[in-house]
Amino acid sequence: MQLQDTADTTTLNYWLNWRVYLCAVSVLLPMVVAFLVIWKHEGSRDSMPAKGENQQDGNGTLPGDEAWKPCLKEIHPICLLAFRVIAFASLLATLIAKVSINGGTIFYYYTQWTFTLLTIYFAM
């Protein structure tokens, strides 16, 4: 069985392909939109709340236990805790199943390490 030759990425024809432009647009367009949204809402001082409405300290940190409370007041903190416990249990069950089926070789891939770190995050 012979392996197929891969495309030569050093030629100009490879980079002038429509697929390369499609990939570039699919990466760059969301980056530009995200930059503009962040610049509009976070960067300008006009969008900052009045002094009495400010929930953050002047140095950009949240006061007290504000980091652990949900942003929406309608969501009870117990619901958020239940979501995190269910998410952790689901992630851990999936990780255990993947390791038991495929073995430790799944950790050769960065995506599995990211998944494991996400599971640890929900555990904390």
Results as ranks from 00 to 15, higher is better:
Tyr21Arg: 13
Tyr21Gly: 14
Tyr21Trp: 15
Leu22Asn: 06
Leu22Val: 11
Leu22Arg: 09
Cys23Arg: 13
Ala24Val: 11
Ala24Asp: 07
Val25Met: 10
Val27Leu: 09
Val27Ser: 02
Val27Phe: 04
Leu28Thr: 08
Pro30Cys: 04
Pro30Glu: 02
Val32Ser: 02
Val32Arg: 02
Val32Ala: 09
Val33Phe: 00
Ala34Val: 02
Ala34Thr: 13
Val37Asn: 03
Val37His: 04
Val37Pro: 01
Val37Ala: 11
Ile38Glu: 07
Ile38Met: 09
Ile38Cys: 11
Trp39Ile: 01
Lys40Asp: 05
His41Cys: 04
His41Thr: 11
Glu42Arg: 01
Glu42Asn: 08
Arg45Trp: 12
Asp46Gly: 03
Asp46Leu: 12
Ser47Lys: 08
Ser47Gly: 03
Ser47Tyr: 11
Met48Gln: 13
Met48His: 08
Met48Ser: 09
Met48Ile: 09
Met48Asn: 04
Pro49Thr: 04
Pro49Asp: 06
Pro49Ala: 03
Ala50Gly: 14
Ala50Ser: 15
Ala50His: 06
Ala50Asp: 13
Ala50Cys: 07
Ala50Asn: 12
Lys51Tyr: 14
Lys51Leu: 15
Lys51Arg: 14
Glu53Cys: 09
Asn54Gln: 14
Gln55Pro: 15
Gly58Asp: 14
Gly58Met: 05
Gly58Arg: 08
Gly58His: 05
Asn59Gly: 03
Gly60His: 02
Thr61Leu: 14
Leu62Arg: 07
Leu62Pro: 01
Pro63Asp: 02
Pro63Phe: 03
Gly64Val: 06
Gly64Ile: 03
Asp65Gln: 10
Asp65Lys: 10
Asp65Leu: 11
Asp65Pro: 00
Glu66Asn: 11
Ala67Pro: 00
Trp68Phe: 14
Trp68Ile: 11
Lys69Glu: 05
Lys69Gly: 00
Lys69Pro: 00
Pro70His: 07
Pro70Arg: 04
Pro70Glu: 02
Cys71Tyr: 08
Cys71Leu: 13
Cys71Gly: 13
Cys71Lys: 06
Leu72Arg: 12
Leu72His: 08
Leu72Asn: 15
Lys73Cys: 05
Lys73Leu: 11
Lys73Val: 15
Ile75Ser: 00
Ile75Cys: 06
Ile75His: 02
Ile75Lys: 07
His76Glu: 08
His76Ala: 09
His76Pro: 03
Pro77Leu: 06
Pro77Phe: 05
Pro77Ser: 06
Cys79Asn: 09
Cys79Leu: 12
Cys79Gln: 12
Leu80Tyr: 08
Leu80Cys: 12
Leu80Thr: 15
Leu80Phe: 07
Leu81Arg: 14
Ala82Trp: 05
Ala82Phe: 07
Phe83Gly: 10
Arg84Tyr: 03
Arg84Thr: 03
Val85Arg: 05
Val85Cys: 07
Ala87Gly: 03
Ala87Tyr: 05
Ala87Phe: 02
Phe88Met: 06
Phe88Arg: 00
Ala89His: 00
Ala89Tyr: 02
Ala89Thr: 08
Ser90His: 07
Ser90Asp: 08
Leu91Pro: 00
Leu91Gln: 14
Leu92Phe: 15
Leu92Ser: 14
Leu92Trp: 12
Thr94Glu: 04
Thr94Phe: 10
Thr94Cys: 09
Leu95Pro: 01
Leu95Thr: 10
Ala97Trp: 05
Ala97Val: 02
Lys98Met: 13
Lys98Ile: 06
Ser100Gln: 05
Ser100Val: 06
Ser100Thr: 11
Ile101Trp: 13
Ile101Cys: 12
Ile101His: 15
Asn102Lys: 11
